[in-house]
Simulated assay, not measured.
Amino acid sequence: MALIRPFQNSDTNRLAVAWREHWQTVGPIVSTTSAQLEQAILDKPFFEFDHMLVIEEEGQLVGFSHLQTDPSDDPPIRARIASFCVGQCADRRASAAALLQASIDLSAKAGIREFEVGTVLGDLSGLVGLEPYSGVIGIPDSDHLMVELLTADGFEPRTPMIAMELDLTSFRAPVDRELLLLRRMATIDERPQQLPTEWRAACAHSHFDITEFVVSNRTGQELASATFYLSDRDALVMDRGLLYLANFDSLSGNPLDVDLAAEVRYAVAGSLPSMVQRRFHTVRAIINSEKPSAPARIDFLTRLGFHHVATGSAYHRTL
């Protein structure tokens, strides 16, 4: 007989077991520890005990559902399951379905009307950096159990995301006419960034260091930038050899809908050699494939040596 109840402090170690077992059924082998989950989820000031439900079978925790409300709502009308895992148990589908329904019921009783499942790029969940896929591609398409349950329950996929990775151990900076010209005509400077000043954003990003590379011409005009997240020296959430390419944009007003401006490509390509010297081994980028600039960005990253890792989406339903 399955039991669904709120999270307790004594559940922490079993959360990590459920997390690892769930993702092993999806495909990627992860080694996420209870300490990593504590820093990413439980230690955040906005974590609420009664917003995490766990499911037990025969007295053993086998899964959990972590709910978050939208911080911009007062009172809350939107909620999201930021993370959802069901590990090895007698009937994973039945347990996952019961846990999903309990999460929906809890939200409906609290007056929630817009309900999402899955964290995507830009959400202030605190999960960014967790394996697999840096926690920001929603529900991976390869998570067939969750995709099947959500579709059957009336959820619709939104915000499709694509995860791409580059192996820096064999990286060589690309050479083309435009980039060669920029090497002679422009400079690229690294600028460590402060955490966001808004409280929720600062808490969600507290396990990161943020650094920005800015391309400027000879007159000092800033042309483009590339922003990376890397693990804080004292944090455990993210692999210290992993870089997360959070953003790369033009600062000169060039549109990115059709093509990616040369200075933007230079901001990314020109920053990576210094990261190789600092012994980072992998760069991960997440692309929102709904945006008009997505094809150009994917094409550029592919030419730079990135390869496709996974796709996923957040799922939405009106309660």
Rank of each mutant, 00 (worst) to 15 (best):
E156A: 14
V276C: 11
Q24R: 11
F306S: 02
H281N: 13
G305M: 06
A267L: 13
P132G: 04
P71M: 03
V17N: 09
M161V: 01
F7R: 02
H316L: 07
T12A: 13
D189T: 15
T151G: 14
I137H: 05
D189S: 10
L182V: 14
F213S: 12
Y244H: 15
M185K: 15
R20F: 03
H207P: 08
F64D: 00
H66W: 08
T119W: 05
E290T: 02
R303H: 14
P140A: 04
A285R: 00
A235Q: 12
A82E: 00
D70A: 09
N9R: 15
L42P: 01
E48Y: 05
T227H: 04
F306V: 03
D73E: 03
H51A: 00
R5E: 03
R92A: 08
L272A: 04
L67W: 06
G27R: 11
P6M: 07
E58P: 02
Q8A: 12
A262S: 14
M238I: 12
Q36I: 12
D189H: 08
T318R: 11
V136E: 10
L106P: 06
R240G: 05
L106C: 13
Q194G: 15
A310M: 01
I298W: 00
T227S: 05
A201Q: 15
N9F: 14
V147R: 06
G270E: 02
L124E: 14
L121K: 13
P295N: 11
H144G: 05
L67E: 05
F46T: 00
T302V: 05
T159S: 15
T318P: 01
M1H: 07
M161K: 01
W19T: 08
A97E: 14
A262C: 05
D50Y: 09
D167N: 13
E21P: 02
S83A: 15
V54F: 02
D239E: 14
I287H: 06
F155K: 04
L256D: 12
F171R: 03
R240N: 08
A261W: 13
P192K: 10
I210S: 07
L260D: 13
P6S: 12
G312Y: 00
A2R: 14
N288Y: 04
A294H: 10
F300V: 08
W19K: 11
E114T: 09
D143T: 01
A98L: 13
P292C: 08
S83L: 10
R278V: 06
R92K: 15
S142V: 01
D259R: 12
N9K: 14
A82M: 00
P28F: 00
